[in-house]
Write a protein that binds this DNA or RNA. Structure first.
Lengths: 176, 176
DNA sequence: TAATGTAATGTTATAATGTAACATTATTTG
DNA sequence: CAAATAATGTTACATTATAACATTACATTA
């Protein structure tokens, strides 16, 4: 996938912490890494160079990255790496809530709100790959209520939406 | 508890067609296949022996099946098959809306309501693999509204919930 | 600080999932 | 029937992910 350059997210919200969801994450890289560092310290987890590099690469990418794309980037930057290395780092980063995995296309992206537990909705543009993370209580409440009604104990819910982002609609939608 | 439905003893929900969402699909196999057959005829699509076998196997499984599990079942039943064969059949069945694919665990399951276009919510038990397909307008309306607000043109939404089904909660949850 | 235990990473090999490309067979249509 | 199209067979390979074990880094404490 992926050719045209993505637009940036334009979602307004007010979360704790120093990361803004309005500004693209790669423009706040230092801040994002510092926050991860602080959270690890607080949680007595080790934010090693490897983990930091992986998070940094994901953070700098305009689109979510696959594990092997990540591996290639690591090699380019001089660090030899094999699949288990990157998968382990990804596991850690997911556990800490710093990245999410998109099951619909096997990619990973930085989480805009690593401070708190949350569930998110992802809007994945099938044209350019740009992915927005939305936080919406309403949807998860509805899912939770529906699950409970079915006697099901919800542990994790994943909502992934495929379609066209605003930018790509303009580019491809005019002819129709 | 299921509300008593008006008329036709075998149909216990309000959907068009002859398939009940209350009764397990494998207990209505013949009917399910007949319906798929009828829909294909109507749509001028070919419901070949291969496609029928794949749908039948999926339908008979209590849990969603992976493509390679399906392949094994086909081999057991005497038909030699290679991956592209089963993937092509799955593609067709998905296009016709007879099966869904679960991205969260790369499996396929029969659709309880192949008659109409719909979006579904899947409750996947991480213990036993049993998966329920729910239809809930509310959730999809909420997702759609949220996407629209973000200027995103929704084409497909996938909602997959992981947790414990009622049965497995009893088995594993007693100590708590 | 040396000894020890644990966590993290390196390394090799392989499993699991999915597709490209082209050959062959079956079905439909002129 | 011939020709076109659709479906399936077949080979090879791409992509995604993990198992198993070796090594290194870090932390603890005697």
């Amino acid at each position: 996938m992926v050719k045209p350059q993505p637009k940036t997210a334009t979602i307004e919200c007010r979360h704790a912490g120093s990361i803004s969801c309005v500004k693209p994450l790669h423009q706040q890289l230092t801040r994002f890494l510092a926050q991860a560092d602080a959270l690890c310290l607080q949680r007595k987890q080790r934010f090693t160079a490897l983990r930091k590099q992986v998070l940094s690469l994901i953070c700098q990418s305009p689109q979510p990255l696959g594990a092997y794309a990540l591996l290639d980037l690591m090699k380019e930057s001089g660090r030899s790496a094999a699949p288990p290395t990157v998968y382990r780092a990804l596991d850690f980063l997911q556990q800490q809530g710093f990245v999410h995995r998109l099951a619909s296309n096997n990619t990973y992206l930085a989480c805009a709100h690593p401070q708190q537990q949350h569930e998110a909705v992802f809007l994945v543009c099938k044209q350019c790959g740009f992915t927005q993370e939305l936080h919406t209580d309403g949807i998860y409440k509805a899912v939770g209520a529906r699950a409970e009604k079915a006697g099901f104990k919800l542990e994790h819910a994943s909502v992934e939406v495929s379609g066209l982002c605003a930018g790509c609609q303009q580019k491809t939608g005019v002819s129709q």
